[in-house]
Design a binder for these strands. Sequence first.
DNA 1: ACTTGTAACTAACAAGTGTTAGTTTGATGT
DNA 2: ACATCAAACTAACACTTGTTAGTTACAAGT
Lengths: 189, 189
Amino acid sequence: MKQPISKDNIIHTAAILFKEKGYSAVTMRDLASQMGIKAASLYNHISSKQDLLKEIVISIAEEFTNGMDSIVASNTSNIDKLKRVVVLHVKITANNTYGMASLNNDWMHLEDQLDYYLKLRNDYETNFLNIIKQGIATSEIKNSNPEIIMFSMLTTLRSLYLWIPKKEELNANDLANTLTQVLIDGINN
Amino acid sequence: MKQPISKDNIIHTAAILFKEKGYSAVTMRDLASQMGIKAASLYNHISSKQDLLKEIVISIAEEFTNGMDSIVASNTSNIDKLKRVVVLHVKITANNTYGMASLNNDWMHLEDQLDYYLKLRNDYETNFLNIIKQGIATSEIKNSNPEIIMFSMLTTLRSLYLWIPKKEELNANDLANTLTQVLIDGINN
DNA sequence: ACTTGTAACTAACAAGTGTTAGTTTGATGT
DNA sequence: ACATCAAACTAACACTTGTTAGTTACAAGT
């Protein structure tokens, strides 16, 4: 079960530790000992601690951007687009629960890539908000404050990483379906 | 506008910095220079960095516990209890946006008080879940997965600290009302 | 004027930080 | 058997960390 030492495996282990304690609290010695080697040996495979964070965060952020782009380009109702956004989040998160923690909590420690990350994030939110606004315009969606609607949906979706690992009995499809119902139809009977 | 040096003001400034960079990334020298003094001088007022985190996190956690206890004890419908939970979160968060960041992201760095914090948190979630389950039992609430309902509501409410500071034009009451609508009635038209 | 007490200061500590240099190990191809 | 090379190692670096000791400044109470 012990994995070989490779850049990918180091990144994966780093993501696990970053989720547990946060980027700043994880030392290269922590990471090395988790891999069963000494800290200096890590540098045969990676270039810096910073770089680990970058690899983790940017790759996921780009996944979201690509997914959103294809949803926006699709030719369906706005409610359907929202459903596809839910599925996008569930899928990416189920695939990489650890990385999602860094995306949510450690992005501010990106240095060179901080601006790039913020641009991706900002564009994503703009697209999300536009779907909701168009949905309101076509009366698919209740005429509530669109920013509050987005905030409510997005924060729920962004927190999935905390919750998916605890509920392994639910598969991704069931979770996406139930979540879609709760978020879109509400809970009132 | 410059505040005097006191334990309360140090805690408040610490909370601001913790929100910005996370507990681990904030140094006592950062904090001191923000207060306009040297790091060693902080120790005339506080006992340790740890203690700052404890003061921030535990006091808010106890506020939530007290609020929840009074909601549970109240004699109203379960939907009404949920509405009061929303108000509880909006009020506490509007009062202490900075501290909420530590509550959400830095609780794992509590040491002596970690177990106590986890108990408060766990009890809170149990109470929350019970309201939902009872609401389902009395048909006030749709018969969906109660844990997903709680997860969805609670993560939205826990993320309010990120959002309230950006939307100062909304007062706490309006926000609580709109949020209640979105969370309970859904967005579908 | 003098004691007292608070709260700032400088200096230093021991431990821990990310990272580099230089060396050793051991498997692989010839 | 020997050369090669990736990847481990030890040792050390320069710097930062939280915190303590000891000292100084100064306002308030006598």
